[in-house]
């Protein structure tokens, strides 16, 4: 497999890997490192890549596991991952200051969710994967994914309603 062939396979989902990593690791730098690591791992195992049925799903599972490892690792326990990149990704919404603020709130709420729900929300609502695909990626069954998704959505909505009504009611 040549470099271009590899890139053709990897390019479509590299952003998804990055966003998933960022969802779990929060810090952009950490997520970039993780993504790079994962893509390099794929590259070094490129001979095996043809055997995988779905490279994208496989990479997502890899990302999930890698990030969990990262979070569990000693480094993360000793040193809190520093992140100050809430402003990122909101460029298109600069005009609506009020809305940007609420968007921050969504980011914070999602950050507070349990890891599994974070993953499910990320994969479903942002990356728009099929429920079956998500189940396969996360090694869960379909119902469990649905339940996690429903809980996550409800939590987000409740908390948003609270902040939205803050000071009014």
């Amino acid at each position: 497999m040549t470099q271009t062939e590899f890139l053709n396979i990897v390019m479509p989902f590299k952003d998804k890997v990055f966003r998933l990593a960022k969802r779990l690791l929060v810090s952009t730098e950490e997520a970039e490192d993780a993504t790079q690591e994962i893509l390099l791992k794929l590259w070094s195992n490129k001979t095996k890549m043809e055997e995988y049925k779905n490279v994208e799903a496989f990479s997502m599972t890899m990302t999930k596991n890698f990030c969990f490892d990262k979070l569990k690792s000693k480094q993360a326990q000793n040193l809190k991952i520093v992140h100050n990149n809430y402003e990122d990704g909101n460029t298109s919404l600069q005009k609506q200051v009020e809305l940007t603020d609420s968007v921050h709130w969504v980011a914070k709420i999602i950050e507070g969710l349990p890891e599994q729900q974070k993953l499910v929300i990320q994969l479903r609502d942002i990356e728009e994967y099929d429920l079956d695909e998500i189940a396969k990626m996360l090694d869960m069954n379909n119902t469990a994914v649905r339940v996690a998704l429903s809980r996550a959505r409800k939590t987000i909505r409740e908390k948003l309603t609270n902040t939205h009504n803050y000071g009014i009611k």
């Binding site: 590299k14 993504t35 790079q36 909101n90 298109s92 919404l93 942002i126």
Partner: peptide, 9 residues
């Protein structure tokens, strides 16, 4: 918005 974030490294 989050969907547009890209890996640039």
């Amino acid at each position: 918005v989050n969907k547009q974030e890209q890996f640039t490294k």
